[in-house]
Write a protein that binds this DNA or RNA. Structure first.
Length: 547
RNA sequence: GCCCCAGUGGCGCAAUGGAUAGCGCAACGGCCUUCUAAUCCGUCGGUUGCAGGUUCGAGUCCUGCCUGGGGCGCCA
């Protein structure tokens, strides 16, 4: 089956053929303006030096869209308004219902896409800050996979840095068996070590020395390190299970993965002249940044910039990625911009591989200040999920949290307010779930009465037409999210669809209607259910049959 | 000092250079012997931080300010 072309795309093509320019087809801003609008006449009028409405009249005269639209209207300063014929909308809704992809267009050029997300730290509990990267990255994973790309998730866990110096030293001091710790206990150990590191000069010195010993391959140190890693992984997986995200052990690619690459990579950079020694450190200078990217510290050690470069190199050379997506907090935007620039300069990142950093705003507490990780006051991810589950059933609570996180622009800071998130009215996850459950309920009742439906054939009520119109836009919205990486656009779309479906429910009873009208409305409900289920899946939210 | 992000009704947010800036919450008022009332319908609420500029048209683009947050050589 040929991929379905969206309604605005059909109009766009015809208008483009006629005028030779991008017609900028847009959804109408008001119902009275029809379904779609183009401002092409306004722009052509300027070029041609003619009145816009006259240009619009010419276009309307020549444009043949009678098979798709009601008679065109010219409005305001020269907008051309398009109203789809109701049989065209009905056919579109039926097409969606019969489409195994629910109107989602398979990617024309499937890519291999690496998505780097979640990245908790070994021996530390996940906290609220990990919520965003995990939920957002998972959404991208679902969206890109669903449209036909090959997604390689990379969970860049913090399993190597200098923090292991103090962790190992603390384990040895306390004489504990690290393999028997729970993650919560390891987290407490981490905090003890961190505060001691600050206050106890002798301990700090030993911890720093331990880093070198550990990274030099000391077996006793490595053994403790392995134990800490091994107790952390099941705890991460348990959190992922509760969150209902796709990550598994197969996606783990922690910092330690690149350890052996670092000296090799640095040598390459030095020999090629991309990196130069400055003030004792080996640096890559890139345009637009005052400070260099330091790839080897004065003391000979490697920092996270080097690890990030090594990860890019592997992802391009071994994973053969076409696109790299990093989901971390917005504060790292500058860092990644510099790393990407350095990787381009070094040749690790060819021009035909795109690299995007998706930054999200900080998670703030009720006091408006960031949740902290090291002072012991941070709320763990688990405690947040527990709190939400006190308000609602687990799948509804999770929907509330995820939707609250995804439904506004990613770059904004975000106040974690469990009570607010779990609300079930208005633009929330549970509202969408409810719409889906209602659709399911109607279809279940229909089946119980042995009623059947096939195509959408009757769209007489305005709300029915509106519903069919919105359904037809699903594929375009998914494409947009895949391209722009803005989940809130999918949220907005689904909310509007659910809202229209609720009006449809009120004004157009399906089961109480008869004949063609009943069959058509049931088919419309089936299409609504299908799109809501798919859309919620893409957000990582459960679509319950009953609520 | 340089750079990035944000600023839109009381609160939380949306808006691809297009028509009268939308939605939710809160508040107030309606609708359940009617497919699920976690829904729906209505009312109230705006100088889009400020000042210029570009444009037929600016919340959106440009310049300069203000406020808040963040980032800028050896932490991640």
């Amino acid at each position: 089956m040929a991929p379905m072309q969206s309604l605005p795309a059909l109009l766009d093509a015809r208008l483009r053929d006629l005028t030779g320019v991008d017609p900028e087809m847009r959804p109408a801003t008001k119902p009275q303006f029809g379904h779609f609008q183009s401002n092409v006449a306004l722009r052509l009028a300027k070029q041609e030096g003619r009145p816009p409405r006259e240009v619009a009249a010419d276009i309307v005269e020549k444009l043949d869209v009678a098979d798709l639209c009601e008679p065109l209207e010219i409005a305001g300063p020269g907008f051309i308004n398009f109203r789809m014929r109701s049989d065209v909308l009905a056919e579109s809704a039926t097409g969606l219902l019969e489409d195994p992809h629910s109107g989602i267009n398979p990617a024309a050029y499937p890519q291999r896409v690496v998505i780097d997300y979640s990245a908790p730290n070994v021996a530390k509990q996940m906290h609220v800050g990990h919520l965003r990267t995990t939920i957002i990255g998972d959404c991208f994973n679902r969206v890109l996979s669903t449209i036909g790309h090959t997604v390689i998730a990379q969970n860049h866990i913090g399993d190597w840095g200098t923090q292991f110096g103090m962790l190992i030293e603390q384990v040895l001091d306390e004489g504990i068996d690290a393999s028997q710790l729970t993650l919560a206990e390891a987290d407490a150990l981490y905090k003890r070590a961190a505060s001691r590191f600050k206050e106890d000069e002798d301990f700090a010195t030993r911890a720093r020395a331990r880093v070198a010993v550990f990274q030099g391959g000391d077996e006793e140190s490595l053994n403790i390190w392995r134990q800490l890693v091994e107790i952390s992984k099941p705890a991460f997986n348990e959190a992922y299970r509760r969150l209902g995200v796709l990550l598994t052990d197969d996606d783990l690619a922690g910092e330690s993965t690149y350890n052996d690459d670092l000296p090799v990579l640095v040598k390459e950079l030095e020999e090629s002249g991309v990196a130069v020694v400055d003030d004792g450190a080996l640096c890559v200078f890139v345009d637009g940044f005052d400070a260099p990217l330091i790839v080897r510290k004065r003391d000979g050690g490697y920092g996270y910039a080097t690890t990030d470069l090594a990860a890019i190199r592997r992802r391009v050379q071994e994973i053969e990625a076409d696109r790299l997506i990093y989901v971390t907090d917005a504060r790292q935007a500058g860092h990644f911009a510099q790393v990407f620039a350095a990787a381009r300069k070094a040749g690790f990142l060819p021009e035909d591989v795109t690299a995007q950093h998706v930054g999200y705003g900080m998670v703030l507490g009720q006091d408006g200040r960031p949740f902290k990780t090291r002072d012991g006051s941070a709320a763990s991810l688990e405690s947040l999920l527990d709190a939400a589950e006190e308000e609602a059933a687990p799948n509804v609570a999770l929907a509330a949290i995820k939707y609250a996180d995804l439904s506004s622009g990613l770059q904004k800071d975000y106040t974690f307010d469990a009570e607010r998130m779990v609300k079930t009215t208005g633009n929330t996850g549970p509202y969408l779930q409810y719409a889906h459950a209602r659709a399911s309920n109607i279809l279940r009742n229909a089946e119980a009465q042995d009623l059947h439906w096939g195509a959408v054939t009757v769209l007489e009520e305005p709300v029915e037409q509106q519903l069919a119109l919105q359904l037809s836009g699903f594929g375009d919205v998914v494409d947009e999210v895949a391209h722009e990486l803005q989940p809130h656009k999918l949220c907005t779309y689904l909310y509007e669809l659910a809202s229209t479906a609720a009006s449809f429910y009120e004004t157009c009873p399906a089961l109480k209607a008869e004949g063609d009208v009943r069959a058509s409305r049931l088919a419309l409900w089936a299409a609504v259910k299908q799109v809501l289920a798919k859309g919620l899946y893409l957000l990582g939210i459960d679509a319950p049959e009953r609520m």
